[in-house]
């Protein structure tokens, strides 16, 4: 689904023609996210969360290492082969990135139109999605006429209208109050329940505590394994140092820490460790992904904005 293999990333520094490159924004990042998983991506600002997300939704390619997304190894893939994969990824940006001159309806319809869906069948899908985010009445409004929360919901609708296999959200609650943030998270969890792999970057620990899930913690461009979310590391690289890893005997069960939610963040020292991560799927908190919905899955969505 999503696999990072010793990924290093440098941004060009001093202009594109000088040939000089900045320091590595990501260093040896290795993890794998199974299909249908929900993962938090944590870290202070500047830790590299956005870089990881941009690699995930193919807005960047790694400087070294390999990033595999939805079966495509992006490091050396042909440029033209990236576009079809992008169409299977939904992205929610902190700043929404709606097109200001298109109505809410047209913004949400963009992914379907890019996929070549005929106008007749597209209309029902988009209206259903607008109803789901509670903005059916504002379909003809332009983004500047909408409030921040409404724009955010339009951005979510656009990210999920085409049933992406992977949903990536970068600080999606940054512009929302607590209530709206909780509703947004409920929506993301709902997508996840229907089979979409979801990755959410945030620094909002409150939110993470409310919706416990495996998390990846980035510090200075390096990955700190909190609770074994880095799927392949446990299996393929047992020599991961894990500097503060306690002896395995003191680690009762990884799942316990996950279930308590807040422990996933606060117990980074004690919960991390190759052995905990290798304890099996149940220990990592993964549940079997539900089968991909067939037909018109949006009819099965609960409406988190009304609940």
């Amino acid at each position: 689904m999503v696999r990072f293999e010793a990924v290093g990333l440098r941004y060009p520094g001093g202009g594109p023609h000088t040939g000089s490159w900045g320091r590595e924004a990501l260093v040896d990042v290795t993890f794998a996210l199974p299909q249908g998983s929900f993962t938090w991506l944590l870290g202070h600002s500047g830790a590299g969360k956005s870089s990881v997300l941009r690699l995930m939704h193919l807005a960047l390619r790694p400087t070294r290492g390999e990033v595999e997304v939805l079966g495509l190894r992006t490091a050396r893939a042909k440029r033209a082969s990236l576009a079809p994969v992008r169409r299977r990824i939904g992205v929610v940006f902190q700043d929404f990135r709606l097109l200001p001159y298109l109505s809410a309806f047209d913004n949400v319809a963009l992914p379907l139109r890019l996929a070549g869906q005929p106008e007749a069948s597209l209309r029902a899908d988009v209206q259903e999605m607008l109803r789901w985010v509670g903005l059916a009445a504002r379909a003809e409004a332009l983004p500047p006429e909408l409030s921040g929360g409404e724009q955010q919901r339009i951005a979510i609708a656009r990210a999920v209208v085409h049933r992406p296999a992977l949903l990536v959200a970068d600080e999606p609650t940054g512009n929302l109050d607590n209530h709206q943030a909780r509703r947004l998270l409920a929506l993301l969890r709902e997508m996840n329940r229907l089979g979409t792999t979801v990755v959410v970057a945030t620094h909002d620990e409150d939110l993470v505590a409310r919706f416990p899930a495996p998390s990846l913690l980035l510090q200075d461009g390096r990955l700190h394994d909190l609770d074994g979310a880095r799927g392949i590391d446990a299996a393929e690289a047992p020599a991961w140092p894990g500097p503060q890893a306690p002896p395995p005997t003191s680690e009762p069960d990884g799942a316990a820490a996950l279930d308590t939610g807040s422990a996933a963040v606060s117990s980074s020292g004690s919960a991390a460790g190759p052995d905990a991560g290798g304890a099996g799927d149940s220990a990592r908190g993964w549940t079997e992904p539900p089968p991909r919905p067939i037909g018109r899955p949006e009819r099965r969505l609960r409406d988190p904005w009304d609940g």
């Binding site: 939704h57 807005a59 033209a80 576009a83 079809p84 994969v85 992008r86 169409r87 299977r88 990824i89 992205v91 990135r97 097109l99 963009l110 992914p111 890019l114 996929a115």
Partner: peptide
């Protein structure tokens, strides 16, 4: 530029 980047990110071909 922004609109092109959005469309590109949504998987629009060149």
């Amino acid at each position: 530029r922004d609109a092109i980047e959005v469309l590109h990110g949504l998987g629009a071909r060149d």
